[in-house]
Amino acid sequence: MSAPLLEVKGLTTWYPIRRGVWSRTVRHVQALTDVSLAIQEGETLGIVGESGCGKTTLGRTLVGLERPMAGAMLLRGAVLPAGIRPAALQRQVQMIFQDPAAALNPRLTVLDLLTEALAYHGLLTESREATALQLLRDVGLDGAALHRYPFEFSGGQRQRISVARALALRPSLIICDEAVSALDVSVQAQVLNLLMDLKEKYRLSYLFISHDINVVRFIADRVAVMYLGRIVEEGPTEDVIGSPAHPYTQALISAVPAVGREASARRPLGGELPSPSRPPAGCPFHPRCPSAMEICKTAAPPTISKGAQKVSCHLYSRDLSSQ
């Protein structure tokens, strides 16, 4: 198989917590710890998890908005230099945010918003108007939008403009961070369909970050589940959601309200998410895990292959099953 479009190995992003007059670093918010994943050309990888699990930090690190403390990033097999956001990454990887009202500069017209980055990179081949018009058509808006400002549009239309802006540089990968979460169901469906169409048309890959498992199940080919800055399970979407292996994934999926299922089928998860600045020792999930064992309190779980799924859990350790 050819090299994946984007691969990260051992990615770690911690934020220092500084205290006192000398601003000494007392602890770190361990937003991402040892995250490895790969996104193939034309693939959609879903990232699910709850608030504070590190999924947004992952997206921001991949697009270069956060500087990782450790880990390697490879674009089509070539190692990207560490440090400030490399130019190659800038053009290849774009991002769409949850709140288009905040992501779009309110003082720029749609024309400016869509062509600013192209002009910066010296990539304008046609007139600005022609380029912007093509982008608007791609996202199902018409030329009437060109000279208007973001506030003149509805939430769904604004998110279409964000998508058009992300497309402008013809990226290979678009990171969608809760891109449809703020939209009403009927509008959300329109934007999801648009993302699917664009993926086919331009052979895009998506890293689709969302707390909404139903949405991820709809759009993602593979899915990774995050808990306290780590990937606890990863695999083809239907495998992970249909037969989750990690106890956290099981609890997460059973907590999603599902039409047609009785509430009694739930396995509610007790307790709350520990602070990412003081993650529990051993397996970070052990204090809430219904299947926790002694070893989980002390040793970090290995990553084990289970069919096409990868799961980080002591339950699946080989030496345990042989006992």
Binding site: S186, A189, N193, F218
Partner: peptide, 18 residues
């Protein structure tokens, strides 16, 4: 509204919209 909700196993089909 009910038809535009993503739910159930993946089909690869587009969602119905209003």
């Amino acid at each position: 509204l009910l038809r535009s909700m993503p739910r159930g196993p993946r089909t690869g089909r587009r969602l119905e919209t209003i």
